[in-house]
Simulated assay, not measured.
Amino acid sequence: MDEHDPYRASSAALTAPLEKLDIESTTKVRRFFNWLIDKAVGYACWAVGAAVAVVILGEPAVQWFEEMSRLLELVLSVVSMLAYYTLMEGAFGFTIGKLITNTRVVDEYGRPPGFGRALLRSLCRFIPFEAFSLLMSEDSVRRGWHDSLARCYVIDRPRNGAPAGRPRHSISDQFADGVLPPARPAAESAP
């Protein structure tokens, strides 16, 4: 018998599809402290990096920092912010601020976001007035544009292996117990 029979059914194991979760975001106060701590970490990294450069390179490094243009300073800060948030959230699902406040970033399935979503979250932070999107969001939602566009949530860290949210119930699940009236036969529905 030919093992490459195109008419034979596949023997591949089926896996259950991932289930989207109803996820509750953490409070706006915790989100503010995440931002504040991450800003402080960013400034500390810049200061340490500058100090190391001055110690190693000496006077030329000092002169380079003093003569740095505003445009170069802006480009370096954007690149460092993109790298920090993308690498930390992509690899671990949290930043230093989220680690301290005991929060995590998850996707709509309750998993860490991965590098693609983390990069999209980081890029969305540069949308004008994006910082106000979280402040102006409804208290029941608590998501900024960088969360909703990347389909992510910032949640309180689950304890003891608990899931990040509750499974969503589809409309068909709600009506599975026969709540809908039975369909009429085709002969009755004709005028």
Rank of each mutant, 00 (worst) to 15 (best):
R30C: 03
M68Q: 11
A51E: 13
K98P: 03
G178E: 02
K39F: 12
G93R: 03
E67Q: 10
A53T: 12
P182A: 08
M88T: 09
Q63S: 09
M68T: 10
P60G: 04
R117Q: 05
G144H: 07
L18Y: 05
G178P: 02
V179F: 09
V29Q: 14
E19L: 06
M136C: 09
E3H: 05
R157D: 13
G178L: 01
H169W: 05
A150G: 01
Y43V: 09
R111H: 09
R117E: 05
T26F: 00
F129W: 09
C45A: 11
S170K: 11
A150C: 01
L82P: 06
L74M: 07
D177R: 13
A13V: 07
Y84P: 03
S25K: 09
Y43R: 10
L180N: 08
I37E: 14
I23T: 07
L120I: 08
E89Y: 01
S189D: 13
Y43E: 14
S77V: 08
V41L: 06
S77N: 13
V75A: 08
V62K: 10
F33S: 13
P163I: 02
T95P: 01
T15F: 04
P185E: 12
L135M: 12
E188K: 07
N160T: 07
E19V: 08
D22K: 14
L18V: 08
T27Q: 02
A50V: 03
D38Q: 00
S137Y: 01
A150D: 06
I96M: 09
F126D: 15
K39H: 15
R159D: 13
L72F: 08
L57Q: 15
R151N: 10
A118M: 00
M81N: 15
T86N: 11
Y153C: 07
V105I: 05
C124A: 11
L74G: 01
E188Q: 06
V48R: 13
M1P: 11
M88S: 05
A150L: 00
P163E: 11
P60D: 08
G116N: 02
V78C: 04
G110E: 06
R70C: 13
P112V: 02
L120M: 03
W64H: 10
A187K: 15
I56M: 10
F32T: 12
F92N: 08
A83H: 11
V141E: 15
S80I: 00
S140L: 09
T86M: 06
P182I: 04
P60E: 08
G165R: 07
L149A: 06
A186Y: 04
C45S: 10
P182N: 10
A9R: 12
G42F: 03
R184L: 04
A50Y: 02
I171Y: 12
K98D: 02
A9F: 08
V79W: 00
E108P: 02
L82N: 07
L18C: 07
A176M: 04
S170E: 15
G161Q: 06
P182S: 10
F175D: 15
F132Q: 14
F94W: 04
P17C: 04
S172R: 12
V75L: 07
L18G: 12
D173W: 02
D2K: 12
R117S: 03
V154P: 03
G114F: 02
T15N: 12
I56H: 13
E73H: 13
P128E: 11
H4I: 08
D156N: 10
V141K: 14
E138V: 07
V62F: 03
V179H: 15
V106A: 02
F33W: 11
A50Q: 09
